[in-house]
């Protein structure tokens, strides 16, 4: 299921919106001082207008990929190219963070407007644009509320509205539905699919949910834990729009799901730093004495 020969990859990279090649990134551990490898020689490319899920066990540097693509952190080595240039944070890229990151002392309206700061829109246009996207996620009645007054699902919708409001050509989403309840999550996934159908951005969607990864994406990128590398890329050849049928009931979904589950289980069991470490290959665990 991996992509084909190297010349084909090069051609794909040329037309790709996001290209990471040979990217490594380490972080200083706050307590120990020794750097932790988050990513090592990561290669990934995302064609324009594609929805790509990044799937992997926790601690495999998925979030780091998004921060690199947004230009919030530079790579230690290798290169990150977004739309033919070095990435620079801004309204051309929308970022949906895992923990919402709404400004607590700003109203919903002000939170969404804040994301339009660097768009070049004037004050009136910003207010109008924000109001439109707040209405799009169904929160017009809460435009003047503070985030503290909203439920988790509503906060996430504000975060979605904020990311979509600048009408970015790239959307970076970091486990956006991880912290909301299961039913709300299902509804939000449909909402996201509908939003994406209207504004076809290039999407990088980080998740640790196999179902979510398949359901939303054109392609699933499977990453290994510590240090993160791309293990495999799998095309999800299920027709859009996917909210119009029960995608989980299709044989192809079931097949992809069990394949990815097996792959992830394998990764977790063979990761020495995981709680479930139980190596299946001979040389991974040498017995003491």
């Amino acid at each position: 299921m991996t992509s084909g020969n190297s010349s084909g990859e090069a051609a794909a990279a040329a037309s790709a919106k996001i290209v990471l090649s040979g990217v490594s990134k380490a972080f200083e551990r706050r307590n120990s001082g020794t750097p932790t490898m988050a990513l090592q020689h990561l290669d990934m490319s995302v064609p324009e207008g594609h929805f790509v899920s990044i799937l992997g066990p926790s601690g495999c540097g998925k979030t780091t990929v998004l921060r690199l693509v947004d230009g919030l952190v530079p790579p230690d080595s290798g290169s990150v190219v977004v739309a033919g240039q070095a990435p620079r944070p801004g309204p051309e890229m929308g970022f949906v963070f895992q923990a919402f990151r709404l400004i607590p002392w700003a109203t919903v309206q002000a939170n969404v407007e804040f994301a339009l700061t660097a768009t070049g829109l004037n004050k009136h246009e910003r207010a109008e644009r924000a109001a439109r996207y707040i209405a799009l996620v169904g929160l017009q009645r809460f435009a003047q509320s503070y985030p503290g007054e909203l439920s988790g699902g509503m906060k996430q919708r504000v975060a979605l509205a904020r990311a979509f409001a600048s009408e970015p050509s790239i959307l970076l989403m970091d486990e956006p539905f991880a912290s909301i309840d299961a039913q709300t999550r299902e509804l939000m996934q449909v909402e996201l699919m509908k939003l994406w159908a209207q504004h076809r951005a290039t999407v990088l969607f980080v998740t640790h949910s196999v179902d979510e990864a398949i359901m939303l994406a054109d392609r699933v990128v499977l990453m290994s834990p510590r240090p993160g590398r791309v293990i495999e890329e799998i095309e999800v050849d299920l027709p859009h729009p996917r909210w119009q049928y029960d995608i989980r009931a299709t044989p192809r979904f079931v097949e992809l799901r069990s394949y990815l589950w097996a792959a992830i289980k394998d990764l977790v069991l063979n990761d020495p730093s995981s709680d479930f470490y139980a190596p299946t290959s001979g040389n991974a665990g040498t017995p003491a004495d």
Binding site: L72, G90, P91, F97, R101, I103, F114, T117, A118
Partner: peptide, 19 residues
């Protein structure tokens, strides 16, 4: 994390300070 959010929408230093 809020500061990083502000950086991601390219808010300026003065704006990050004020807002």
């Amino acid at each position: 994390e809020l500061i990083e959010m502000a950086r991601s929408v390219r808010a300026g230093r003065m704006q990050i300070f004020a807002r």
